[in-house]
Design a protein around this nucleic acid. Structure first.
Length: 522
DNA sequence: TTCGTGACTTAGAAAGCCGGAC
DNA sequence: GTCCGGCTTTCTAAGTCACGAA
């Protein structure tokens, strides 16, 4: 089904070419002159010198594999330990120091220059006209070359991701354009795919994966898809008992495959697992429900099932399913029988089988919709658990954040704990004491709340659930009920993304509407 | 029925900006 | 007015899922 009639834009922009700085490395006591590409690689590596990444032997050796290919003999046989990058390290240190030592005026003018350049680029490449209406594009700049920053134990981490050129890029645009050349060059291919909304596409030269440029999430087309997603999740809620009845009944199917599918659905519904499709050898070893291995089940009995594995983004996934259905326990026990720790529990099933089963029960439902549904429901139940009408704005805000946290916990949205976490907590506690001593009651109350939230969100990140999982209509309705400005919960860009829920005035018009200035978010 | 591919959504880390506390 | 930490935005990796071909 076509989704657009006319679609025009100027293609995408490309990052500046690398400007060689005349730096060199030393190998076996000798200075080695570098080609521009070799220098660019070493420079990118040096920029990471103070991060944990460069301590990782795999990251280093992958980097060296690509770097040494650009070096003349005998340096092309160099090991990481044999190469002296001191000149590069000094260079990036100096760059940082220079940046820091700039006066305020210099910093300001630099920021202004950069902003101007960015806006100029955005004016030409950051927009498209879709069916006569101007929309923003999301990522209109091609990805720059650099070191591949795969998560977890990705086998390619540290490898060189090559530069892409306009020749490598395919544009999706309407028939009024047959070829396109910009200041960056001529685009490799033009297609007119009326059924797709991508703007540009290329193949990542390192990983072989497709990369896309999309309409911004504030565009009508993205917003309507977003709304459909949440409507679909609602459908799960309306039919949950049917779904669960069907899943439970198929747990004891005579057909093994059907029992596997039902067991996986049970896990997806009850503990919020992802479906977990098969991955390639050259990717990080992470799993979801269908790819769970024997070694990932730490306990299995009628009281509990304990899980411990690495999920998407190599995030540790440790949860307990209390009081599981005994038939599920029996199934999983059966599936694990006579298997080694590294063997998969479920055989020959993946998202295709799971989704075929689910969409048979309710049209259009797939595995991932359960996470949307449960995250949203979690927030809704939390918000409904207490009457906040008489509370202060501050209390309402924190209450809303705790609801958000419940969803993040459900979805297992973890973060690495910031290095400065302990330190910053101490500072807050100190501040609290100061406020107490000075008798600043309001500030005491505020700081107490801040400290409590800091502790509870130590290892969780709330943004992902806010952006992708919680139906914004739930928060909107609650805000209206308790009398809280919805804008205090959502950032400016989320307000734009969710303007289908609460329309906001076009940019630039807000300030003109006197008398009260728009209140900033807390 | 399986498999590969292409389109689209979800994800945490890093960069960058901005507003509150002094 | 300044400074710094935290919050927001950007970036791009890593998932899901439908579809068409074999």
């Amino acid at each position: 089904m076509p989704v657009w009639k006319t679609f025009s834009h100027n293609g995408i922009a490309f990052p500046d070419p690398y400007v060689p700085k005349g730096l060199s490395i030393r190998f076996q006591g000798q200075e080695v002159k570098l080609s521009p590409l070799a220098e660019e690689m070493a420079y990118q590596f040096a920029k990471k010198k103070d991060t944990p990444y460069v301590q990782d032997p795999v990251f280093r050796s992958n980097f060296m594999k690509y770097f040494t290919k650009q070096l003349p003999p005998p340096a092309n046989k160099a090991k990481f330990e044999d190469v002296d990058f001191a000149q590069f390290y000094r260079f990036v240190d100096k760059e940082r120091a220079d940046k820091e030592s700039m006066t305020k005026e210099e910093k300001k003018s630099l920021a202004a220059t950069r902003k101007e350049a960015r806006e100029k680029l955005k004016a030409k490449f950051g927009k498209a006209i879709l069916d006569g209406k101007e929309i923003d594009l999301a990522n209109y700049l091609a990805e720059p070359p650099g070191l591949f920053m795969g998560r977890g134990a990705h086998p390619l981490r540290g490898s060189w991701k090559p530069r892409i050129t306009p020749q490598d890029v395919t544009l999706n645009i309407d028939e009024s354009v047959e070829e396109l050349t910009t200041e960056f060059g001529k685009f490799g291919e033009i297609v007119h795919d009326h059924e797709s909304i991508w703007v540009a596409r290329w193949i990542d030269k390192l990983t072989g994966k497709e990369k896309y440029v999309w309409p911004h999430e504030s565009s009508d087309i993205q917003q309507s898809r977003n709304r459909e997603k949440y409507d679909k999740a609602k459908k799960i809620g309306e039919n949950l008992s049917d779904l669960q009845k069907e899943i439970r009944s198929k747990l004891s199917s005579r057909d093994r495959k059907e029992r596997e599918v039902a067991s996986v659905c049970y896990l997806i519904d009850e503990v919020g697992m992802r479906v977990g499709d098969e991955k390639d050898e050259d990717e990080a070893d992470t799993v979801g429900a269908t790819t769970l291995r024997v070694e990932h089940i730490k306990r299995l009995d009628n009281q509990a099932i304990d899980f411990d594995f690495l999920g998407k983004d190599s995030v540790k996934w440790v949860k307990t399913l209390p009081n599981p259905d005994p038939i599920l326990v029996r199934n999983i026990g059966d599936f694990m029988k006579n298997k080694k720790p590294g063997d998969q529990i479920f055989e020959n099933i993946g998202s295709a089988q799971v989704n075929a089963f689910l969409s048979e029960i309710i049209d259009g439902i797939s595995a991932k919709v359960f996470r949307t549904y449960h995250a949203t429901r979690t927030v809704q139940e939390y918000l409904g658990s207490k009457n906040m009408k008489k509370a202060s704005d501050l209390e309402k805000l924190y209450f809303a954040k705790y609801a958000n946290l419940e969803a993040a916990i459900y979805c297992n949205h973890k973060r690495t704990i910031p290095k400065t976490w302990e330190e910053s907590l101490k500072k807050k506690e100190q501040k609290l004491e100061d406020y107490k001593a000075k008798g600043k009651e309001q500030m005491v109350a505020k700081m107490q709340k801040e400290i409590d939230l800091t502790k509870k969100t130590k290892e969780y990140n709330l943004n992902t659930s806010m952006k992708n999982y919680i139906d914004p209509r739930i928060y909107k309705q609650w805000c209206d009920e308790v009398g809280l400005d919805w804008n205090k919960l959502y950032t400016k860009s989320l307000q734009r993304k969710f303007s289908w829920v609460a329309p906001r005035p076009p940019d630039g018009e807000e300030e003109d509407e006197a008398p009260a200035p728009a209140k900033p978010r807390a």
